[in-house]
Design a protein around this nucleic acid. Sequence first.
DNA 1: TAGATTGTTAATCGATTAACAATC
DNA 2: TAGATTGTTAATCGATTAACAATC
Lengths: 209, 209
Amino acid sequence: MQKNGISNAVIRRLPKYYRQIEWLLDEGVERISSSELSMRMDISASLVRQDLNWFPGSGVQGHGYDVKNLYEEIGHMIGVHQSHNIIVVGAESLGQALATYSNFEKYGFIMTGMFDVNPRLVGLVCRGVEIRPLDHMEAFIRENDIQIAALTVPPKRAVELAARLYRAGVRAIWNFANADLELPDDMIVENVHLSESLMQLSFRLNASA
Amino acid sequence: MQKNGISNAVIRRLPKYYRQIEWLLDEGVERISSSELSMRMDISASLVRQDLNWFPGSGVQGHGYDVKNLYEEIGHMIGVHQSHNIIVVGAESLGQALATYSNFEKYGFIMTGMFDVNPRLVGLVCRGVEIRPLDHMEAFIRENDIQIAALTVPPKRAVELAARLYRAGVRAIWNFANADLELPDDMIVENVHLSESLMQLSFRLNASA
DNA sequence: TAGATTGTTAATCGATTAACAATC
DNA sequence: TAGATTGTTAATCGATTAACAATC
């Protein structure tokens, strides 16, 4: 997974750098020092320098980092310019919200289809994308070169559906289902566990009381 | 924040234990060993024991941990039995999806109101909760003892709205806006950055190619 | 050149793992 | 009692921070 030995801790921070630097770019800032970035991002300047060392050529001693170059380099590392077709599996409200989520395109993901078992939902169109019956999923994946699926189904269906997605050739799952998917190592799973996030909020709220 | 010195690393795992143990309970399992939990959760047995040491009395040497007791203890630690009123600020599709998200109640959060600037949305009812005009937000917060707000607005509005929520007395923000909120330390912020999650997925997909 | 700031090595800190004694 | 498995201490590993030499 870590092609270049870049550690997970760094990978988690890359999107934060990218976002921050995007703002700097918007503000017309051309150069930024590790200490200034450090203040904006609330991490140490030392860590910033360690992290940005993955992008040699962006930093210049005595002058700071070239914002534009950094933006390009990090974007390239993240793979923002690669495009991938994505489907949404489970077209209830969360699935629909994701389908209308415009940032998809910004990061190279192309919303291609939506699927649901519920006949009441089939046929609806969300942001130009039609909700199709779940039976058609596998054929659709093969015909449209789908590499990613956002999974927004009830936990009980998630494991089985994830296995179907794997068999159909999907390479990555953006998993919103409240379940631990058991899949071969070559499937990439990015979890968004809202209930865990909520419990952490609850813990902190109660701990501070 | 860490009332009892429990580390962040442990706190992040608590919800995972809680969910896992909930399943065990459903399956009728009464006792479980650290090694079995470790296999199910894909972390080391040693770490499981370290973590569960925060709940003395659940473990019995030679016999494993009492599932029911552990469930109670962790639930208590997380604060699942405390109840808090929550509002959703920003009632577009993601806000609406959250409002219909049934797990709220499970963790003691009571969906009390929704707010949006868009007059087209005001008046709509989502799962029994009406969307109200944003101007009414502060009064509503005071009158209904709102402690938590889920923030699902465009990044540009997020910082300002977060400040308004703080001044109105909200104690915690569940932040879905793609922005870094700048707030006093006594405001609890739990971030769900979908775009960062998406970028990590992208990175891993491209790194594995 | 002098000043600023990176790049990089070494020190520290925290979290995970290993090992085993305690005990049910 | 013997076997199993926790509780807990020590060792290891990885990530962050500190420090400063290199250099623009």
